[in-house]
Write a protein that binds this DNA or RNA. Structure first.
Lengths: 150, 150
DNA sequence: AGTAAGATTGGAATGGTTCTAAAAAGAGAA
DNA sequence: TTCTCTTTTTAGAACCATTCCAATCTTACT
């Protein structure tokens, strides 16, 4: 079982950092890793309540902050609703945010090194780079096209 | 004077869109255009109060939303404090956000077309692309280096 | 087991943003 | 100009995500 947990990079990361592996942290890390979504804190909390009915929203915030601090997940802001979203996928990629349905697609094809190089050329010490593209996903673009023909 | 105002792309954009050019909107547009900063709503409001002591914060929000809707300015999220920042500069560039002092530097050297092409390859209809790089500016990197040697 | 540091909890406090109703200002017609 | 209608501004309340807090519970270690 311990081996199974350690195959989760979020749990492994917390272990390596020497923080306590509490039941709450493990549950959140497991769910984040398997969800493959870009959830808000509230969505994480709602999911947790099914398995862990007493988990506090503060714990969700604490754990998400911890994971961000350990560089195991990333924050993804500026979606239409006013709440922060979290990115469990740690490999660099472009986030394609659909203005229609709010879905976030991941585009792993783009190489970020040119971006980092450009920043470094301004004597800027790069920690991480994030690219967000706003627009319409295929489904919403089709639907919007239909509406405009009415 | 009207010519002078029209040299401001934000004012010109509002004119072209056919919205009313009120004193408040002009004042905000002028300040945004000349500031060259990445201000929060509250900073815009504070600046406005010097010239327009009765301007409401709601008007600042309304005007900023209008300018975003008209694609004349852009939102820049995810700075450490929990408030939205606005980008008056409309030419595409990378935002270099310093984790030390919070300053946002603009890097105009990078060409965004590759990013848009990568998104388009996923059948995504691109509206705009934004790149944010987190790290340390030259001053903060030097200072942090000094501290770590203490 | 005992202990001390760290984590969780629930509720209150904070603060950015949005909403609302009423007053003010703009645009157009007579 | 003056009247009228629409849009905008205003001030403050409401909203909601996030943070803070004190008390309680866990964990890791001896």
């Amino acid at each position: 079982m311990n081996d199974l947990l350690c195959s989760n990079p979020l749990i492994k990361g917390m272990q390596d950092a020497g923080v306590r592996l509490t039941a709450q942290r493990i549950a959140i890390a497991q769910w984040l890793h398997h969800s493959g979504q870009h959830p808000t804190s509230r969505e994480v909390h709602a999911a947790m309540l099914e398995y862990h009915p007493t988990m506090s929203l503060a714990t969700v915030y604490n754990t998400l902050s911890l994971l961000v601090e350990l560089d195991l997940i990333h924050e993804v802001g500026s979606i239409e609703d006013g709440s922060m979203r979290y990115e469990p996928n740690n490999s660099p990629h472009i986030n394609l945010v659909c203005k229609g349905c709010g879905t976030i697609l991941d585009d792993f094809a783009f190489d970020m090194s040119a971006v980092k190089a450009s920043a470094a050329a301004h004597n800027f010490a790069v920690h991480d780079a994030s690219i967000t593209v706003h627009g319409l996903c295929e489904a919403c673009a089709t639907q919007q096209g239909d509406i405009s023909h009415e």
